[in-house]
Computed example of a mutant assay.
Amino acid sequence: MPNLISQIDDALTACGLMVRGAVALSSEDHAPNGPLGMPARSVVLVGHGGADYWPHFERWRSTQTQDLANPLDAWSRSVLEEVASLVGARALLPNDRPYAPFQQWAIRAERLRPSPIGLLIHPVYGLWHAFRGALLFDAEIEIQQAEQLNHPCAVCVEKPCMNACPVDAFSAAGFAYERCLAYVRGPEGQHCTGCQARNACPIGIEYRYPASVQTFHQAAFAGL
């Protein structure tokens, strides 16, 4: 399938998204089914670095009902399914059940590693990137091996991300989800426009999501 990745990337660019790597799958991966109902042999990850996707999502959202549940997932699905129909793939989202191992795929596809707060960090985009979905293929496709990337956290001495949270939700023990959620849902959280730990990271600050985008994601996280 020559130029398949380029074809997918070109289609995604019109929506502010891009190919975020690809992985060949074997029987040991227990992969989700491809378009023909058999375990997929290849997966192409779709996402973004920075918030280039946001204007496209906002325009689409303005054409939908105001009470649409999970609008970003709905938009992502509409984009991925359209691209999937062009290239003979099956679209899959991170929230689809049973959950697919998106984080493991991302580590294999782009050789990313977790930051101290658990999010995968990219050497260019920092913590300001995401995977919106994947395209599953029945057949093996030509995949270029990802280059080994430098892990910025390895040379970060101060680790500001670990000290910025107002309720100390991040520690060596992991992420205190309930503590974070209680803060965001409480009166103090009403003035919080994004994860302060994420904002404290000095990598990729030019790709930092605008305040409106961070507010949207925080409200979705808190179920507000």
Rank of each mutant, 00 (worst) to 15 (best):
G189R: 05
L72N: 01
A69F: 03
C201T: 00
E142Q: 14
D29W: 08
L119G: 00
E82L: 01
F137G: 01
L120G: 11
C195F: 12
P35I: 12
A200G: 11
G21T: 08
H151I: 00
G194D: 06
V167A: 09
G204I: 04
A40P: 05
P94N: 10
H151W: 15
R111W: 00
M1I: 04
E58N: 03
P152C: 07
A146K: 04
L135D: 04
T65K: 14
Y207A: 06
R97H: 10
A69K: 14
A22C: 02
A100R: 02
P39S: 06
V184F: 12
L224F: 12
L45H: 09
N163Q: 15
V213Y: 01
R61M: 12
S85R: 13
G118M: 11
Y183K: 03
L17W: 11
A24H: 14
A40D: 09
R77G: 06
A109Q: 08
N150E: 13
H191P: 00
Y177Q: 09
A31M: 08
R185N: 15
R77D: 08
M18R: 15
F102I: 05
R208I: 04
Q196M: 15
V43L: 07
I203D: 02
H129I: 05
V157Y: 07
G204Y: 11
I107E: 14
A139S: 14
D9Y: 09
V79H: 06
G16P: 10
N163H: 15
F170C: 03
P166K: 13
V213C: 13
G189N: 04
V167H: 11
Q104Y: 04
E110V: 03
Y125W: 15
F137K: 05
V167E: 11
H56R: 13
Q144W: 00
